[in-house]
Design a protein around this nucleic acid. Structure first.
Lengths: 146, 146
DNA sequence: ATTCTTGCAAACGGTTTGCACATAC
DNA sequence: GTATGTGCAAACCGTTTGCAAGAAT
């Protein structure tokens, strides 16, 4: 999270078979240096500060490409727009029902116990756990009338 | 799943504080009697067979209302339109990356081990586990080039 | 020089909204 | 009779697409 320079980022992009442009660099860095799980729109706003001529379409295309080559993750919790995450590797998310913020959960669920019964015949490629609730900053509305 | 008559469904709607209309009845029954997790559009097509004059907008409003009062669940896995589920209670989903079908997983994940560290200060209201992969009918494209 | 990427703007698709009419209670 | 729900159509918003100009290799 700290001492990475442009050269490292460029290498990372190249390693993933990507042509390097300053837009891609900016987008990846923006994503890399945040712990939020920003949407395309948010990333766009962020990157636009440095490169005002960048277009939203490019951000969409770029994020999708990053996702395709396995450079970033894509998170789409319940009822929401796509949110992205530069942190790779299996981890899960706490999604605040009030403010829509997303936090990572480091090590909460023991992977092994997720064993899909064979009768399903389902081949699991990846799993995603979404915990919905309220973050410290957001108190429950009054109490969930479920 | 078998011997429920209209009266039962009406009672269920009333129990949830809902005014009863034949549209609501039809929508809820359509959802209740399927194991798919249909989208609003699919439910609309289904219900339209019996009530050709029903509108898609009504289906959206109705499903959202059902969800609000806790009559149905809402599932929105990665990169997809909202899908609904009349099966209440905690359970999780297998989502096919190829054909987008959704199957329920009965008892796969042990709930207890999901313990969010207190330091997060996050109050979990509900959790949802999405297992993405390929259903028996759909073979992997060739092999996931992740 | 060729291929891939960008920017722009228009199209798209699912969902929401506003409003007049109809229905449930 | 009053509040609520319905149907329709337009609006909305996130995302995708087509294409000509520009940049990377």
């Amino acid at each position: 999270m700290e001492g990475k320079n442009d050269k490292d980022f460029i290498a990372t992009l190249r390693d993933h078979g990507l042509q390097v442009t300053y837009q891609r660099l900016a987008i990846y860095q923006a994503l890399y240096y945040t712990k939020d799980h920003p949407s395309a729109e948010v990333i766009y706003q962020q990157v636009k500060k440095r490169f005002p001529m960048i277009s939203l379409g490019t951000v969409y295309k770029t994020l999708e490409k990053f996702y395709e080559v396995g450079l970033i993750q894509k998170v789409s919790p319940i009822t929401e727009v796509a949110r992205y995450d530069a942190k790779m590797g299996t981890h899960h998310h706490l999604v605040c029902l009030a403010c829509q913020s997303i936090q990572d959960v480091e090590c909460v669920i023991g992977e092994p116990q997720i064993t899909v019964p064979d009768k399903h015949g389902f081949q699991v490629v990846r799993q995603q756990v979404v915990l919905q609730g309220y973050c410290p900053a957001c108190k429950p509305p009054d109490s969930d009338p479920t």
